[in-house]
Simulated assay, not measured.
Amino acid sequence: MSKRVAVLTSGGDAPGMNACIRAIVIACETKGYTLIGYLHGYNGLLNQEYETLSLNATHNLIQQGGTILHSARCEAFKSHQGAKDAAKNLQALGIDTLIVIGGDGSFKGAQHLSTCWDGQILGIPGTIDNDVAGCDATVGYYTAIDTAVSSIDKVRDTADAFERIFLVEVMGRHAGFLALNAALASAADYVIVPERFDNEQQELERIINQIEARRKLKGPVSFIVVVAENVWPGGLNTLAERLSSHMQSEVRPVTLGHVQRGGSPVSQDRLLATKLGTYAVGLVGTEKTLIMIGEVDHHPVEVPLKETWAYTKPLDECSVETMLATMNQRY
């Protein structure tokens, strides 16, 4: 008997979501499954808003950013009645398996749905923040790093021209993966991430000491500080004002914002999305449910959804040590 599969994208969009949808479409077509795409995240479940997906939907899709299924937050779904209504709609369409592409908030929604629906639920990690535990990387993360690095490189040009201090804020929600690796790849001079942030006065003094040591050796120089969003009390402008006051020089804050969530996915995200989407369809019809399909050491892994938010995913210590060495160099 042919299976009926549904897929939705939820939460913040991430480059590679479309590549993942494409892989799911192709895999379902190969296996003879019917596939529908729910629109606007969990809102589509509540409003029975969907479209049938076929190979026609995959043309030029792998390179497109965003998500053709669209995404949205859905407060109504969080209630018990919301889960009941969503389950009723899934049953009305005869859905056997629901695949959710998103972050830990989307996975919590999937877990919530399971209290009212006994169908198979599979998750695929899609977020630029890379803050989902149980996998090495999430779909969209690699592209976001590239986008941030490209922007920081451009900021460096004008910083060098004016021998000026710049603060560049990158996204990441409450995790420092994007900030740390963007700083490393762009050869930024300093990085502030939530995982290693304890005291704002001490952090401020470290930055000042780094700048003064650099200027003592080389005279006026540019200096780039990459800052993870939500980490500095009062925001980026507050840090800029405090640093400018101490240094008696101009400090320019730059917030990259949502530009990091857009753009054509890089090859790493396309490959990851394709592998995870295909693997997920391979599990359709099995007893495995309420799991995330991720990748660790280039191998697919199956992780219970509850474990994806049960603990804080740690930064890579090798990357941390490398950045510390970069920050402490004197030249």
Rank of each mutant, 00 (worst) to 15 (best):
L180D: 04
C135T: 15
D131V: 01
E200T: 11
A179E: 05
V132R: 00
N181H: 11
N130K: 00
D157F: 13
K154E: 13
A175Q: 09
T138E: 02
V168Y: 04
R164I: 01
G176K: 09
Y141M: 05
G172A: 11
E163N: 14
G134A: 02
P125G: 06
V132N: 03
V168M: 11
D189C: 13
A137H: 15
A182G: 08
D189P: 14
P125C: 03
L184M: 13
D160W: 05
I128S: 06
I121S: 00
V170E: 09
V149T: 07
D129P: 12
E195M: 11
A188F: 13
E169D: 09
L178G: 04
N181E: 15
R173L: 09
V193A: 06
E203D: 11
L180K: 00
D153E: 12
T158V: 05
D160K: 11
V149L: 07
S151H: 08
A179N: 07
A187W: 14
A133F: 04
R156V: 02
G126L: 04
E169H: 05
A133Y: 13
T158W: 13
G126F: 02
A187P: 10
D160T: 06
S150P: 00
E169Q: 14
P194S: 08
L167Y: 03
F177M: 07
G140A: 09
D136H: 12
A175T: 04
A188G: 14
A144S: 10
Q201A: 07
M171K: 07
A179V: 12
I192S: 02
D146R: 09
S186M: 11
E169A: 11
L178N: 04
D136V: 00
I128N: 08
Y190V: 10
V155L: 12
V193M: 08
I152G: 02
F166S: 09
V149R: 00
D153T: 13
F166P: 01
V168F: 05
D198F: 08
A133N: 06
A148K: 00
D153C: 11
R196M: 12
D198E: 12
V149A: 01
F177P: 09
G126E: 01
F197R: 10
I128E: 02
